[in-house]
Every structure is written in structure tokens, then in C-alpha cells.
Design a protein around this nucleic acid. Structure first.
Lengths: 340, 340
DNA sequence: TTTATCTACTACATCGTTTTCGTAGATTTT
DNA sequence: AAAATCTACGAAAACGATGTAGTAGATAAA
């Protein structure tokens, strides 16, 4: 069912029907209502491709993220989709699987006008952003893992503060040697959290040891954590920048008979719904993932609809929440127990 | 950059350029290579809307699911997207948020040709499927939460068997009164798992008690679970059909000072990565979510591309895996302890 | 009455590709 | 040499919706 058929049914011209459907002032009120009625009766729907071709806009946005099976990105998608649904937009999803080559390919694909705007979170491999600079005309919004130097809106959490407080929390509960685990030194979130970590060490007059900072981007993450916890002077606190690394830490601790929190305290960024039920319950920094999605989408739609142009340098920072649980509980006994 | 401009640059006709780009035999080999070179140089990309309009296909599929922030649907999205990326398809995502009205609206939206096919998992509210029957011409594939009576391909796990084995597992570990918790009696997964549950009771000559079967689709799920576990003759085993309900059960048990597994054993369908680290570690039935996504996408693309119609009744069943952990461990002492 | 202004509609070009149909010129077949 | 067949390209008609530029006919202003 298209305009032509509908027009024939109504003995009207195509233009009249088209205008009636979009409630143009050029069309008489009587005509409008008959057109509307007939359109509903015949279940007419605008052909999106014809419309997009003519209007040069797609009513579609792209979400480019590393992974969908993730306690952070899942709710972000929910947030984005909920705003898109309200606004009548469609959401295309593309996954980089943390692979920069895929990210580049996806961005290239998106240059042909298929979408009106892009929201993205960088892959952990993404070191340079040449592929993104080429998008000059395309509305673009970053969230969480942002490219700091680019002049586009960014929605993040207060990673520096969170990194600071997480470290501070470990120190206050008795940690002296705190390891920082993250996935890639190139990521904005790693850098900011790391700076917060170092600042907290500095404020507390704890010397910063380079070999307590580990970036695990290979497949043998577990081996590296195992090696870390087997060191003679192993850390008494682990600050994991992503949930996955905290879970691995738990597994390794069990394997090595290290007790959490007595031997090692663990804190991490996590949106896991089961953090409170872990053994021991895990102290987490929760990011407002759903709200990040909504906020990022809202800003993108403003850009797309050209309501305002001075969004370009805007940076929106939402607050994370530290929830203290047993994995970082202060322990009285200085029961130093090394792996045997 | 479009065909017209490209043709002018090359002093060729639009048709020639178009054909050259898609490697038509009508075009001379020399011409082809100059066209290709120029296209690359000027970064020409086919306009997707013009192409879709003309060819009447979109190279896009829709994924309609209840929720993205979910340990099952997350990996499913990964699976679908990976196949789509291989095949050069685009993936639109729509969330029903378990709301049938939204599901109906989304399906209606998708009738205008925006996508070449739909993959979906029903919302828990979805009782009738009139909105889906109207899609007669549109390739459609169900996964996990399927509409049994519809003649379209369905990809599921062996829910009946899993329900049977889960129940059997509880019985073998000493449970006498097993509650079955699920979200909606309308869902295929609920029905199949429930049948497996009843069959296991029957085989083990345990009487089936209607009031041990609870469908929690309201917001006060926790209250209902609390009430269940406060009953005089409360169940000694809980079989939760979805992860969320097991987590709530854990929370309620902690609240009521009920010990898992001594007082209540818990098993559930879950793809949580932290199941092994819970306190106690949670016995789960893991569904091969990523593979379900890949399989469903693969079948949908066959439908979309080959126009093969004998896929229509195909049902693909993948195996789930039961991983026994401490939450269902047999306990010797008949230490009956009621909440006070 | 003449002219200007509205009202309600239609014709048509356009968006960028794809594809069918043609055709000039070269080559092969009879 | 005439006829048939190829080769390599171009013209033009879709695909369906939108918006500009008209235009009858009615009403209002001069």
C-alpha cells in the first residue's frame, strides 16, 4: 500500500494525500479526515526509504559499543532505546567486540547517511581516532569510554573522583599496597580512574609502585592476576577498573586460598545485580548506566535536530555510587598469610 | 558523493558506473577498473535508501526483545550481531520492556518494509499473537520465548528436559516440597519448564501442590517470595525459572535467616558469570545464549535470502547445561528451622 | 466592477539507485 | 556479402514520498 494506490482509492492526487497525512494547512479539513480514515482502513504506512531518500534523514541512530553482554552496556542500551522510542527514532546496534579494526569498519559504513547520528563507547584497542575525525558532519556523542581530545559531547561518570574514593576506601580500611587493574591504558576511563588512584596514594603518602598497575588486554588475564597475587610482597588491596577483573580476582583468591577481605581487599566498578550476594559481598562503584544511556541519547537527538550547536564541547558528568560491602571490610588481625 | 557526480568525473553514464561498481558483465574490464579506482578515491558509498527503495530490500533485520540488561539477552544480541556483521546486515533493536502494548506497536512499525526480517522473544505479557499473525509476508524467527502455535522457525533450549532435570536434581539432593517460580504462565518457557517440573514430581511420586507454583509478574515479587518462605510448611527447594527470582530468593533467605542449602535449596536458569561466586554458589542451568543468537540469525537469513519455505515448521533445540553447586548440596542433618 | 487575496487542490521535479531496453559498432557465422 | 551475434555502453523508467510551483474557483478589498 503506497500513496499512489491510496490516492486512487480516494480520487485525489498523490500530493493531496501526502499533505493531508502530514496535516498540511493547504488541505481542507473534510478532505483530511477522509484521507486519514482511508489510510487507517487500508493500513497505509509511509515507506521509510522513500521518505528518507527524499528528506535526507533517516530517523535512525547508531549505537556502537564493544559488547552487549555486559552489566554496564546492557542498561545503557535500555536507556538509549527508551529515549529513541519516545522520539520515534530507530536504533541500529553495532558491536566492535573490543576490536579496533571492526570499529573502523563500522564507522566507515556509517558514513553513507544510513543514520542521523552516532553514539559510541570506544573499543579498548582504539588508540587513534582518525576514523572518527572523518565523521565531521555527523552528529556524534561519546559515553563512558570517550576520546578526550575530540570536540563532541561526552557523557561520563566522575571517573577521577571514583578512582580517588575507591582507593581512599581501601586505604581507610587498612590497605597499604594497592594494585590497580584495568584493561587498556588508552581508554579514557582507565586514565581517569588511574589518576584518581594515584592522587589518593599521594594524599595518603603512600608510594606509588609502577608494578602494581596492570593493564590486562590479552587473553591470559587470569594468569597475570595469579602471578600478581603470588608475589612475595603481594598487594593487600585490589582496585579493579572493570567487573570482569574483580571476578577473576575472586576466582584466583579461591584458588590460592587467599581470604577476602582478610588477605586481600577487593573493590571494583560494577553494575552487577549480584554483587551483594557474592562470597564475600563485593564492594562496588555503581555507574548510573541507564541514565547515561538516556542522557547520551537526549543530547544526541538535540544535535541531530539541530536545536543547538553549542553543545559541541559539552561534557556531562554523572555520579557513581560507592557501595561498601564485605570485600573491603577492615580486619583487625594482622593475620598475614601468604600463599604456599 | 553520488553516482551522478561520479559519472560526471569519469565522463561515463550513470548506468555504466552503477553497473561497473557491481561488477556487471556488461561493462568492459578497463572501464571497471577506472570506475573502481575513482570510486575509492572519492570515497563513494552507495546511498542505502535509494538502493533499498529500488531493490525493495533493506539489508536490515529487527531484534525485538524484552530487555537488553539481561544475562541471557545480552549474549544473544552478541550472537545475532556477529552473524549479521558477517553477512553485511544491519541490526535494529527494539525493546518491549515486557509490555505487550509496546510489542504490538513495534510490530506494527515493522510492517512498512524497514526490515527484511524479524527475530523476537515474546514479552511476558504477551497473551495473544494477533499482531504477529499479520506479519504473514515477513520472515520471522522466534527464540527462547516462542509462540508455539505459529508456523515459523523457533530456536529454543530443551526447556522441558531442563525443567525435569532441575527438579530431579533437587529431589535427589533431598527436597520433598519444591516450589516453582516463574514470571508468566503465558510464556512458552514457563509452560515447558513447568511441565518438566511436574513430570519429575510424578516420576518421583511426589504430590503436586498447586500453591507451590507461583507466577510473579507484578512488582511485589519479593513480598510474594517472602510470604512463600514464611509459610508454616515452606518449601525446601526452589526452582526459579529466571535468574532474577533466584536472586530475590537469596535476598529473602538472608532476611529471614534461612540457610541455603540447609533450609532451602535453590536452582535456577541463569547465565550469570558470578553464579559460582555467590554465597553459597548457585546451581544453575546455563542456556547457550550466544549460540541461540547465532542460530536464530542464521536461520532468519536463510529465510530472508533463499526464500525457502520449508523452514517454516523448523524447530531448533539447543542443550542447556546444569551446573551443580552449593545452593543445592545435599545436607545430612534434618535440621528443620523455621523463621521466627 | 476590477483587482487582490484565499482556499483547496494538482502537476511535476526531485532524492540516488537499479535495471530493462536500446543501439552503434565490431566480430563472427552463413 | 549479407545476416546474425557480441561487446560495451547509454537513455530512461521505475522505486515512493515530498515540496515547490502552479491554478481554478471563491471571497474580499479597491
Amino acid at each position: 500500500m503506497n500513496l499512489k494506490q491510496l490516492a486512487k482509492e480516494l480520487n485525489l492526487s498523490i500530493s493531496t494525500v501526502s499533505k493531508a497525512l502530514r496535516d498540511s494547512h493547504e488541505i481542507g479539513i473534510a478532505t483530511k479526515s477522509t484521507v486519514l480514515a482511508k489510510a487507517k482502513e487500508l493500513n497505509y504506512q509511509v515507506n521509510p526509504f522513500a521518505s528518507s531518500l527524499r528528506k535526507q534523514k533517516s530517523k535512525t541512530i547508531a549505537v556502537v559499543i564493544p559488547d552487549a553482554a555486559n552489566d554496564f552496556f546492557g542498561p545503557v542500551i535500555n536507556g538509549i532505546e527508551s529515549v529513541a522510542q519516545e522520539k520515534g527514532y530507530h536504533v541500529l546496534i553495532y558491536l566492535t567486540h573490543e576490536d579496533m579494526k571492526k570499529e573502523v569498519a563500522i564507522i566507515k559504513l556509517l558514513q553513507n547517511g544510513r543514520v542521523d547520528g552516532i553514539m559510541m563507547s570506544l573499543s579498548e584497542q582504539t588508540s587513534d581516532t582518525a576514523h572518527l575525525e572523518e565523521l565531521s558532519e555527523m552528529p556524534l556523542v561519546f559515553f563512558d569510554r570517550v576520546a578526550d581530545h575530540m570536540d563532541v559531547p561526552k557523557i561520563t561518570t566522575d571517573d577521577y573522583n571514583s578512582g580517588f574514593h575507591a582507593t581512599q576506601h581501601l586505604i581507610q580500611n587498612g590497605c597499604k599496597r594497592i594494585a590497580f587493574l584495568s584493561i587498556s591504558p588508552d581508554l579514557s576511563i582507565s586514565r581517569m580512574r588511574m589518576r584518581g588512584y594515584r592522587e589518593a596514594l599521594k594524599v595518603n603518602k603512600i608510594e606509588h609502585e609502577e608494578n602494581l598497575v596492570l593493564y590486562l588486554n590479552s587473553e591470559d588475564e587470569k594468569t597475570i592476576i595469579r602471578r600478581l597475587l603470588k608475589r612475595k610482597n603481594r598487594p593487600d588491596g585490589i582496585f579493579a577498573s572493570v567487573e570482569k577483573l574483580a571476578i577473576l580476582t575472586y576466582e584466583v583468591c579461591e584458588e590460592l586460598n587467599l581470604r577476602i577481605p582478610q588477605d586481600v581487599k577487593v573493590i571494583c566498578f560494577s553494575n552487577s545485580k549480584t554483587a551483594a550476594l557474592l562470597n564475600p559481598s563485593l564492594t562496588t562503584i555503581i555507574q548510573p548506566a541507564y541514565e547515561i544511556g538516556r542522557e547520551a541519547a537526549t543530547i544526541l537527538f538535540k544535535l541531530v535536530e539541530k536545536k543547538r550547536h553549542h553543545f559541541l564541547q559539552e561534557r556531562t558528568v554523572l555520579n557513581s555510587t560507592l557501595i561498601a560491602r564485605n570485600s573491603t571490610k577492615a580486619t583487625r588481625a594482622r593475620n598475614k598469610k601468604y600463599s604456599k
